[in-house]
């Protein structure tokens, strides 16, 4: 295992949307060499956190650092971000998009991306506007996963695609894994990605509800992360007091 670097650090990170907190004094530390599942119900702040780290949301208070820097030009070259919307021009083709990434990102592997497009059975010269939502998502994941970035931020990468393609996406995530980088996947479909995760962060109303090593969490709760998620957020009143101790731990500490 390589040296432990902090890739992401937030302290008291807060973001309000018209008075309603999306992030509420969030303290978090994410290190390299890990695939991290960012889970939580709708409105728990997953998307907002990823936006801030990607540098597309500047209006926050508290600290947010990527590789020790405030998100900005310097971090963008090292961050590979996939938002949960379609961010490519309708009239572009996958080939155009590949060219664009090859032009702007020195760490983009165009050949591998092209192979992935074909694996997804996408037509490289078809216009995006003639594609379904799921197909467009595949184009975007192809772009994002074929960079050699230090931080990957994937906002719901698998929710809109068919099960066979989910497997391809998971493969590409595992393939892009390196001990130098940190990969954050936000999702509410934990079941599908659970075996791929090192660590899990449960967000709830803009705070870390529970965080830790996936294997440890499974051992502690005696079930899958998916079951843990359901029990955490579906039966709030259930006797989960013993998990409260873990939730109290500040931020996100790996226990490896």
């Amino acid at each position: 295992m390589s040296m432990d670097d902090i890739i992401v650090r937030t302290a008291k990170l807060t973001k309000n949307y018209r008075g309603r907190p999306a992030l509420n004094e969030l303290d978090l530390e994410l290190r390299n060499g890990r695939i991290i599942g960012l889970v939580g119900p709708n409105g728990s702040g997953k998307t907002t956190l990823l936006k801030i780290l990607a540098g597309v949301l500047a209006d926050y208070s508290g600290t947010a650092e990527v590789l020790g820097l405030r998100p900005g030009l310097e971090t963008k070259a090292q961050v590979s971000y996939m938002p949960d919307c379609s961010y490519l021009e309708d009239r572009m083709t996958p080939n155009d998009a590949l060219d664009l990434f090859a032009d702007f990102y020195t760490d983009f592997d165009r050949r591998r991306a092209y192979e992935m497009l074909l694996a997804f059975r996408l037509e490289p010269t078809q216009r995006l506007r003639d594609m379904s939502k799921g197909m467009r998502e595949k184009v975007q994941i192809t772009l994002v996963m074929n960079r050699a970035a230090r931080l990957y931020l994937l906002d719901e990468p698998i929710s809109g695609v068919d099960p066979a393609s989910r497997q391809l996406i998971l493969d590409s995530i595992l393939r892009s894994y390196s001990s130098e980088s940190c990969l954050v996947i936000s999702t509410h479909l934990i079941h599908d990605i659970e075996p791929a995760l090192d660590e899990v962060v449960f967000l709830d109303r803009g705070r870390v509800r529970l965080a830790g090593n996936a294997e440890d969490l499974r051992a502690e709760s005696g079930g899958s992360i998916d079951q843990l998620f359901r029990s955490l957020f579906q039966s709030e009143a259930a006797g989960l007091r013993e998990l409260g101790a873990t939730a109290e731990r500040p931020g996100f500490i790996s226990r490896r």
Binding site: L73, K76, Y81, P83, L88, E89, F104, Y105
Partner: peptide, 14 residues
Amino acid sequence: GPRGYLAHTLPIPA
């Protein structure tokens, strides 16, 4: 718009 997510994540000086 949605395309801003691309424009603002490309490493281009403002």
